[in-house]
Amino acid sequence: MSITTGNILEVRGLTARYGEVTALRSADLDLKEGELIAVLGPNGAGKSTLMRSIVGLTSASGDVRFRGELLPRNAAAVAARGIALVPEGRGIFGPMSVEENLQLGAYMINGRGEDYERRLSRVLTLFPRLKERLSQAAGSMSGGEQQMLAVGRALMADPKLLLLDEPSLGLAPKVTAEILETLAELNRSGLSVLLVEQKAPLALKIASRAYVVVNGRISTEIDTKEITSHDQLARYYFQ
């Protein structure tokens, strides 16, 4: 696969180890500008490690390029480039208010000012329920609301690329559908999205392509239009 200018993210030979265990082996991945793609795979396959390695939260080797530029292995610096991660388990700050969580999302612009207000109103339009709960402790909200906050907080950074790690975890199907629909909507408005999901059918509904990770390797790339049944998908997992 050649390096094309249309890619917002290019991952080449990304390898991550936790001590003796190699959690991710030489992963290659491309994400085009404005695309929403999914990374699928069973539990413990290395999907989260892939996400964490892309944003510099692991000491992985290999290249990650963002719009052609090599990314440093330092999460804070990666965030500064305009890449936002919604981590596995949401990573919201429970003791802080919803508003403070959102302010932290806009950490790079100091969590105030005109820019901040603009971003805030956008997020609150997207997730009206957060508006009612601005002063509430984030930890006291329901799981669905917390996930909305996690996504909203990531959007507060006004990212060019949004990474989501298992947003459906622990949520009711209805709530998951609601959140994924919001993601699709964001993608339609031009945001590039990389979505890690264990619940493949849900992800495949909104993604244009998908990678399947098994045992720390990206085993297959699928065009979502080709997938028509669960059986077909299962074949990718267990081949």
């Binding site: 939260l57 804070a76 965030a79 700050f93 403070e100 302010q103």
Partner: peptide, 24 residues
Amino acid sequence: SRFGRALVALSGSEDAARALGINV
């Protein structure tokens, strides 16, 4: 302040804080 929020954030999850651009 921004600094204080960042401290509370890193106390919750250092990784989540880093991913927001905080120099932990």
